[in-house]
Design a protein around this nucleic acid. Structure first.
Lengths: 214, 214
DNA sequence: TAGATTGTTAATCGATTAACAATC
DNA sequence: TAGATTGTTAATCGATTAACAATC
């Protein structure tokens, strides 16, 4: 870590990892910033700048070794330090994440889910036990949990966020559709707004249509 | 539309809409850029710049009328022109979107879902009929579909994307976790990478921890 | 009118791109 | 060595912020 790395750079790092994984799976061993730039739609300059925020992953005249670079970026992101995670709210969306989201590929381990519905409390989803939300506080004091995935109704989001921070949860992956802001605390909140994503797509889509209509 | 509006601005517009909805629900009638800036963690300057990409929504000495501004932004985003959408792949994730995603609040209407699993083909999920994927091409030629929500395995993503563009689908909301790039076509692709979001959160989380450890 | 707040221009800041010397 | 490509500095570009005149 040189000095402050901009959020733009950080948010590009997972993309590099994905592309490197694709190349690696294809049996490629090395890649140059020029090649990567074509594959990813970035400039070679930007790629070299980004990667140099961390350290000399490359080698002049050769390029970047894919496995080494992949590992370097993952380390820079801290992905080698596994985070424990719980899902709170096992509705449609929560269950989809439990069943399909690759926590392990993101440097995390899903250890439990919590809900209030008697139909699923006590069951397990894809190997993850579902406990009653009443026992959450006790669970959090007895087990170290880094991240909570919030997939419950907005009406309960604020109270839950408070409980979580109180119990030492340091990250909230927030799917409630309602921004949670803890500006001055040590809690990291990642607000996911799928609707924003859809609406933005709609905007560009309608733009394109207009252009074509002319 | 003045000239080219930057993507940064466009991606902030849905956030404004959300905040305005919160204020409106609370019975508030007007808001100033200064108030909004505090609520949203932006600068008042930036808010005024953003809103002026479109037109004089505000009134000097008064601020912005919430309902009017809300409508103005929605119009700028084209949300009044309803898009028809289909979900392709009704696995856990697809079903969660069908059941829970508010297409109508995003200027769209979900008209059908497609899958191959005999257990769900022929059923309907939250009022959305699920058809067999074999009939997709025919369906698309007979019904105008603007947007396809892609929630199927990566292995099928490329072929499906090709079919969709061939049949005139203009937007792909891509949840496959694999980037689809149609640089030089009229198709708009919005790649959603939940893993990128999680990994980024993890990075900031671990940073915070390190700082606190000192 | 006086006060408030916008719309808009100018200044600053940061991010991206270009260039090139270092070096494998 | 000659060629390729990085690491890094300098130049450019765009986005954010500050300032203030216009005006409700």
């Amino acid at each position: 870590m040189k000095y402050r790395i901009s959020e733009n750079v950080i948010r590009r790092l997972p993309r590099y990892i994905r592309q490197l994984d694709v190349l690696n799976a294809a049996g490629v061993e090395k890649v140059s910033s020029g090649e990567l730039s074509l594959q990813m739609g970035l400039t070679a300059s930007q790629i070299r700048q980004d990667l140099n925020c961390f350290g000399g992953f490359g080698q002049q005249g050769y390029g970047y070794n894919i496995i080494q670079l992949r590992e370097g970026i993952a380390n820079a992101l801290g992905m080698n330090k596994i985070l424990s995670a719980v899902v709170i709210g096992a509705g449609n969306f929560g269950r989809a994440l439990i069943a399909n989201f690759k926590f392990d590929e993101c440097g995390a381990e899903l250890v439990a889910a919590f809900d209030v519905s008697p139909e699923i409390v006590g069951t397990s989803i894809s190997g993850t036990p579902v406990y009653h939300a009443d026992g959450l506080e006790k669970y959090l004091t007895e087990n170290h949990v880094d991240v909570a995935v919030l997939t419950l109704p907005q009406s309960e989001a604020d109270a839950m966020a408070e409980l979580l921070t109180k119990c030492g949860v340091k990250g909230i992956w927030n799917f409630t559709g309602m921004d949670l802001d803890f500006n001055d605390e040590g809690t990291v909140v990642e607000n996911v707004h799928l609707s924003d994503s859809f609406i933005t797509m709609g905007y560009y889509l309608r733009c394109t249509d207009e252009k074509e209509a002319k």
